[in-house]
Every structure is written in structure tokens, then in C-alpha cells.
């Protein structure tokens, strides 16, 4: 069993609490992302799991065993760092075999494992090259191969793709996830890239200011965020004041019947993609385009409807001009309401 669980982990540096009550669990063979802006404590959490930093409070379990006090070199977890950290004085072969050499394996067995790893990351024949001869993507793959060579129970990835350009990043992500699935290795991915987290994880833990604000599947987090903070983390949204009384949703923009309980005062979240823009006089909600930004696959508008400014996104079949009169429709099924005190 190599599921990993964190229980009430806390950590302070110089009396500043950087981690507060961190709890989450990664089932065996699954990928969990720690997602958050820089400085939110996600890398610290990863280092605590790896044993590079010891927590002030709390326990870490690998399977059923507490590993909180196990030193880093005996943990069975391994980190791939953001800048790969390939040993510059060793060639690819010795880099990948490093962990095995430290474990005092026989040369013959090390060679077999190195070959296996090179095949896994699709870099056969790179044995004698030195790190400075490799491209960024190749370095990243060698770093991954080096980490996997020691057959760790848990793989920890610290922003492993952020130093690569967009196209390469996507390829590397695919390769990495494919290997992850093939080996069925429990993985924790630290990232600040929301798309990366959404696309590669079974579950995501959103960290803000040293706390896990929400833990759930990518769909749950995107469709059903538990706070405005988290909703905004996945992109800007529209919020309008509203209330619900007698099973009717009321706001300055629209009202419709709902099954939700009464709320005296709340904020209704409307995703920009849930607003559909039509030419004038198609619906009753009339407005005007304030600005538009052309983004290739999408066009981003701000529109003014009933004195309320809204953001909307649409595909560019029809491009509206600034100042053009329009009407809109709102997909009310996806409206999410946050209570206000």
C-alpha cells in the first residue's frame, strides 16, 4: 500500500505560520495536485512529504505507517524539482543510476535499470551525454527517469513543467502522465498553472495562504467552488447581488424560479461562458458592448446590461463591435450562489 496521507500538518518559519492544518490523502496510484499562487506553501508541503523539512505538528502516513520522523534518504519518496538539478559532473547514465549506486546495487543491475528508464522516457542511447548537452525537455525527462529509477513509493513533482515553453510543456505533461499511469505510482504534483492541474489530476487541493481551501475533483472545483476566492482562482467571474425569497431568485438582472432555500443577501456567480450574446431583440435582456478583446479561439467582451457590467466570452462566429446593441441569454442552471452575512 502506498497511499499517502497528511494529518494536521503545521509549520512556521520565524514565527510566521506558513502551513495551517494541512489534511489530505492521495489514494494509491492517483495524482493529486497542490494548486495555488506562489508563496502559498505548496512547495513547503511537498518538502515536508519528502522529508526535507520537518513539520512542527502533525503526522504523515505512507500506507499505514507514520513516516514523519524518517529521514529524507530512507523515505521512499522522491522529488523532481522545478529546475531538474541534474548533476552537472555526471553523464546521463550516472545521473539515472545515482540513487541505485548510493543504495550499493551491483553495477550490472544498475545498468539494466538505467536502460529500462531510458526506454521509459524515450531517450535510448543518451547514456554518455552530459546534462549541458541536453535540451530543456530532455533534461526534464532524465530528471524524471532518475527519480523513477529508485522505484519510489511516491513521486513528488515540484512545478516540473514550468521551465518549458507551451508546446513542449504539453508534450512533457502527456509523457509524464502516461508513465505515471503505466507504473501506477502515487503522485503529488505542485503547480500554479490551473489548466495543468485541471487536466492532469484525479483530485486537486487548492492552497491559499498556507491552508487547503478546497479539496476535490477538477469538475467539483470548477463547477462548484466553495468560495469566491476559489472561483476566481480558475478565472474571473461575474458576481451580482441577489436574494432568494419564496423559491424565486431575484437580482437586478434577472429573476427566475428556483428550488434553493431562501437567502436574504447573496452573490450570484455567473461564468462568462454562461452568457450568450445575440443581436438586438432576440431576448428581453438588452445591453451594449463596452469593449472587446480578440483572443483567437475566443473573444472576450465586457457588456453593460441593466446598468450592470458583465464579462462574457464567445466563440468568434460573429464578432460584435464596441457600442453595438445586443441582447443576452444567461444559462441559469450554472448560476452558483454564495451567501453573504
Amino acid at each position: 500500500m502506498s497511499k499517502i496521507a497528511l494529518k494536521n500538518i503545521e509549520k512556521s518559519f520565524n514565527k510566521v505560520k506558513v502551513l495551517k492544518n494541512i489534511n489530505f490523502e492521495v489514494p494509491e496510484g492517483k495524482v493529486v495536485s497542490l494548486l495555488g499562487p506562489s508563496g502559498c506553501g505548496k512547495t513547503t508541503t511537498l518538502k515536508i512529504i519528502a522529508g526535507l523539512i520537518f513539520p512542527d505538528n502533525g503526522e504523515i502516513f505512507l500506507g499505514d505507517k507514520a513516516i514523519t520522523d524518517v529521514p529524507v534518504e530512507k523515505r521512499g519518496t522522491v522529488i523532481v524539482f522545478q529546475d531538474y538539478l541534474l548533476f552537472p559532473h555526471l553523464n546521463v547514465e550516472d545521473n539515472i543510476g545515482f540513487g541505485l549506486k548510493m543504495a550499493k546495487l551491483k553495477k550490472k543491475n544498475i545498468n539494466i535499470q538505467v536502460e529500462r528508464m531510458l526506454e521509459l522516457v524515450q531517450l535510448k542511447g543518451y547514456n554518455k551525454k552530459h546534462p549541458h548537452e541536453l535540451s530543456g525537455g530532455e533534461q526534464q525527462r532524465i530528471a524524471l527517469a532518475r527519480a523513477l529509477a529508485i522505484e519510489p513509493k511516491v513521486l513528488l513533482l515540484d512545478e516540473p513543467f514550468s521551465n518549458l515553453d507551451t508546446k513542449l510543456r504539453e508534450d512533457m505533461r502527456e509523457i509524464t502522465l502516461e508513465i505515471q499511469r503505466k507504473l501506477n505510482i502515487t503522485t503529488i504534483l505542485v503547480t500554479h498553472d490551473k489548466e495543468e492541474a485541471l487536466m492532469s489530476s484525479d483530485k486537486i487541493a487548492i492552497m491559499l495562504k498556507g491552508e487547503i481551501k478546497q479539496f476535490g475533483t477538477p469538475e467539483e472545483l470548477y463547477e462548484n467552488p466553495n468560495s469566491i476566492e476559489i472561483a476566481d482562482f480558475f478565472g474571473k467571474k461575474n458576481y451580482i447581488s441577489c436574494n432568494i425569497a419564496k423559491h424565486t431568485f431575484n437580482s437586478g438582472l434577472l429573476s427566475f424560479p428556483t428550488k434553493m432555500e431562501d437567502i436574504k443577501k447573496g452573490k450570484a456567480m455567473i461564468k462568462p461562458e454562461d452568457i450568450i450574446i445575440y443581436t438586438e431583440e432576440i431576448t428581453d435582456l438588452r445591453g451594449v458592448i463596452l469593449s472587446s478583446k480578440y483572443g483567437g479561439q475566443r473573444v472576450y467582451y465586457t457588456i453593460l446590461v441593466n446598468g450592470i457590467e458583465l464579462m462574457a466570452v464567445s466563440q468568434p462566429f460573429k464578432i460584435f463591435k464596441v457600442g453595438e446593441k445586443i441582447s443576452i441569454d444567461i444559462n441559469t442552471d450554472n448560476i452558483k450562489i454564495f451567501k453573504e452575512k
Binding site: 522522491v78 524539482f81 548533476f87 545515482f98 540513487g99 532518475r146
Partner: peptide
């Protein structure tokens, strides 16, 4: 210190880290 941390993560003890990583670099 990163190279040393990386070596430790890969299972090297302090002496091994010094001999194989810190000193050569």
C-alpha cells in the same frame, strides 16, 4: 544547496552526498 538536497532525496546519506556531489561540483 539544491544539488545536495536532490542527492539526499535520491537516497544518498550525508557522507555520500559530500563525496559524490558536493566536492566534485
Amino acid at each position: 544547496e539544491d544539488m545536495e538536497l536532490q542527492a539526499k532525496v535520491l537516497g544518498a546519506n550525508s557522507l555520500q552526498t559530500f563525496i559524490y556531489i558536493t566536492f566534485p561540483i
